[in-house]
């Protein structure tokens, strides 16, 4: 092989190299550090080299740590509830707004605004609105003639509902936008065929639109699920995990373990578990896409063989 040809073959890798370097320093190094730290009994006053190596004890402790298990359960509950609500509302809105209305593009822009606000700001905003006396919700409730307002952030059930509402408010637009895009790229003629076949609007949604949107919806769902497991800022600002542990999701637990309890090793172990879980989800998502692609390829091949 000539020198020129070899250089040509190496060109793509040369372009990739800077990104790879950044990735190694900014991603792999900290992750490696974290994985290593999760095997240590390490307090912030020590340098990492001074910490004792304790093997898997941090992980073993986690499995018996009621507070961690509680926050793990809260996270799963939170993710399941918000993602379900967001999917239903987001897809529902998309179904309602999938038509040519004047000013639709403006409406769409307004819809995605919540997504663009920094999470801390969202948290602060909702904290004011949930305020027991001056917040808009309780003021409205009192104006309507009810004696007592809702203990939004001071009751364990209500505070969970409160953080769910805030998250749904912020992230439903994400699903709405993706669902709307998927819907608008559906084959028009298949829907017309369904109309001729006698399907009502509702039957078209259930039997044609939703099944055809499924691939996009599944990817959207996984993206949201991954995000919901990592949620931190809004809840930190709104409730800081309280009252009790009612809204303490894993991310917050990790933050407090490191900051308040000064247990860096244990915090690293928690982070690691969360990471593994998210990776499982992500790999699931990739597998799904791969399977889809393989299926399409197989179909195409089968069809082409017969098309002689």
């Amino acid at each position: 092989m000539s020198a020129v040809a070899r250089a040509n073959r190496l060109t793509p890798y040369m372009f990739l190299a800077p990104a790879a370097v950044v990735l190694v320093f900014a991603l792999l190094y900290p992750i490696g550090y974290m994985v290593y730290a999760s095997f240590l009994d390490w307090s912030p006053s020590q340098r990492i080299g001074q910490a004792d190596f304790i093997g898997l004890r941090n992980y073993a402790n986690l499995l018996t740590d009621a507070a961690f298990l509680e926050s793990f359960w809260v996270t799963i509950k939170f993710a399941a509830v918000v993602v379900t609500l967001e999917m239903v509302i987001g897809v529902g809105l998309a179904l309602l707004l999938d038509r040519n209305i004047r000013g639709m593009s403006l409406l769409r822009t307004i819809f995605i605004l919540p997504m663009m606000i920094a999470p801390i700001v969202v948290g602060l905003m909702w904290r004011y609105m949930y305020h027991p006396t001056v917040g808009i919700f309780n003021r409205t409730i009192k104006n309507l003639g009810f004696e007592t307002g809702i203990p939004w952030l001071s009751d364990s059930t209500w505070s969970f509902i409160a953080v769910v509402i805030a998250d749904v408010w912020q992230w439903t637009p994400f699903i709405f936008i993706l669902a709307l895009a998927a819907m608008q790229s559906l084959p028009r003629s298949a829907l017309e065929a369904a109309e001729i076949d006698g399907a009502t609007e509702w039957q078209k949604v259930i039997m044609i639109k939703i099944p055809l949107m499924m691939p996009v919806l599944i990817v959207t769902l996984l993206l949201r699920l991954i995000d919901a497991f990592k949620v931190l800022e809004v809840i930190m600002v709104l409730t800081n995990g309280g009252p009790g542990l009612s809204t303490e999701i894993v991310a917050l637990r990790i933050f407090r373990t490191a900051q308040e309890f000064q247990e860096l090793g244990e915090a690293a172990a928690m982070s690691n578990l969360l990471l593994l879980m998210l990776m499982a989800l992500t790999i699931g998502m990739f597998m799904y896409t791969k399977i889809q692609e393989a299926r399409t390829a197989r179909m195409l091949k089968a069809a082409q063989q017969e098309d002689e």
Binding site: P187, S189, E192, A193, A194, L212
Partner: peptide, 13 residues
Amino acid sequence: LAMVFQDYALYPH
């Protein structure tokens, strides 16, 4: 009435 479309408009799923 029944209709046959140019792109067949079959239900892919």
